[in-house]
Design a protein around this nucleic acid. Sequence first.
DNA 1: CTGAAAGCGCTTACAG
DNA 2: CTGAAAGCGCTTACAG
Lengths: 345, 345
Amino acid sequence: MGVSLKDVAQRAGVSVKTVSNVVNSYPHVKPETRERVQRAIDDLGYRPNLTARHLRKGRTGIIALAVPELGNPYFADLATAVIDAASQHDHIVLLDHTAGLREKEVLVSQGFRSHIIDGLILSPIRLETEDLLARAGGPPLVLLGEREYDAPYDHIAIDNVAAARTAVRHLIELGKRRIAFLGARHESLRQPAHLRLRGWREEIRASGGVPDESLVLATDGYDRRDGAAAMTRLLDRTDPPDAVFAYNDLVALGAMRVLTERGLRIPEDIAVVGFDDIEEGQYAAVSLTTMSPDKTAIARLAVDCLVERIASGASTAAFPRRILPGCTLTVRESTIGRGRPGTGA
Amino acid sequence: MGVSLKDVAQRAGVSVKTVSNVVNSYPHVKPETRERVQRAIDDLGYRPNLTARHLRKGRTGIIALAVPELGNPYFADLATAVIDAASQHDHIVLLDHTAGLREKEVLVSQGFRSHIIDGLILSPIRLETEDLLARAGGPPLVLLGEREYDAPYDHIAIDNVAAARTAVRHLIELGKRRIAFLGARHESLRQPAHLRLRGWREEIRASGGVPDESLVLATDGYDRRDGAAAMTRLLDRTDPPDAVFAYNDLVALGAMRVLTERGLRIPEDIAVVGFDDIEEGQYAAVSLTTMSPDKTAIARLAVDCLVERIASGASTAAFPRRILPGCTLTVRESTIGRGRPGTGA
DNA sequence: CTGAAAGCGCTTACAG
DNA sequence: CTGAAAGCGCTTACAG
């Protein structure tokens, strides 16, 4: 601390410009000058002050990632992947969580940390299109997740309708007919789960069935406790389902805990499919069949998009992209029972 | 972007100093001046450039948190708590993961991001004392976790020996006599798990038993797969244990998966105790008894310590503190069976 | 209560 | 190939 370019320049007997050239490996520096400067740098233990560099260049090399909560392993995995992808581009990651609160999501999206971050990756739950449109020239933004917006920003998300149909089809092919949907939120149709719920309806119709809306269970959130509560309500009724498609793995795992407590067999009595493919599902007592989004691809695409937008210098995207990473079905014991290796390890 | 103090000053017809005073809510500003400036700020949509402020003040308000991996829910929870604690002090958090690699831990501890961060909270796995001593005047540092160092830095960690003894005593009180320890690392005695292993030995001796070192199972890491692999090795022997104390919950959950696959009953055949109290354990088919460190306290203490050290301006701590947050036993089905409510929810 | 000026540590045209 | 100087946008003694 305290050693500046000027100190190095003085010691090496050159101007700060020359030192700067060496530090930034500018090619046209006379070898002996470079060596002299390098020695001064080493002697003094000089390290460039990045803040100053940032101020000058107008970029910080920091991108922010805002997710609802790190406590959901899906988002922890995603954050890990984003950190790694960002480091490929020499960027570091400032992490924040919104708890899925619209107020916090708005705050983050408005870039209350502008000037510190070059760009933002946001996975919103309750944010509305109008909030995005009101965003006054903040840093470039890339959106993640199931919510859809009519706003000038890139959006990375799997095809939720198609993925949900795949999950439900799997259950139908196993002979299940009363398939519940766990995790529709107590809110408007534009909330998350909307698309997965639509997939549920479409696939049931496609198989010649009629969606039973009483099998759609609303929840407060998407945690284990929400899954457990919804499953309890479902089982307390007279006509239980023979399968459950959950909004995500946490909801599915909460539901499975209740099934186990009640002594019901998975999948014989009730089969379960989740969504996200968190590792916990592999090691559950009955391992969990789930839809596996390609998290690495999602993170990489998000960071690539963002870095590109940052380079372009525009706050909004004139031609916003909609990118669909892959999502595949991973079959485990919760739908086909023991018999094949369960952990997938 | 592009609106500076100067622009606001011009529009309001005052000097930049006055605008700065208003922005920083300096008390002695004539009300009508303040109002005029505020109007200019609003009209222009001015937002202070934090990078410039940082350069000037020499502080950024950013602290870094480096954990082995976010994929372990314990660290995800800890990160969440650190972010919240930091925001209490108006600091934001740069997150990094080390994968428990010494090289990466050294890099982080040497502050390769110095000048961007005001301080660092590091949870090391393989870092050595010499690495810390070689640290050349980086930003203030607070250490977390089971590793112990003889270095001038504050250290926040529960009393691992005492906590392990509590866990083992619980098993002994339930009548268990052959208690295995899962998760000693294939490395030196100074590695993590050392203290918990010592607690295991001490408590067995205290109960009048003799620690059976063949029941100490080494693992490569502390993940579910490590627990599953170790449990498999243990069961393939002729003399299985009647209880397992795992280094952490992930190892315990991996072990439980294997027990379930083999058709063994938990806790009747083999009881299991973990460490960390991650939510997953509450919702496992057999809910997991575990040691519950006070993560919120750990995060708060770490941030408080760090902020204090930052304020003091010293890179190292003349009188490093050793702080011991609480850690309590949480009893669930994996030791006492079904019969009481299991999820603890 | 407010202004003019220096300076935080860099990078970058502009000269030479 | 290298130097002198301006400027990124703030804050802070120093005056008045």
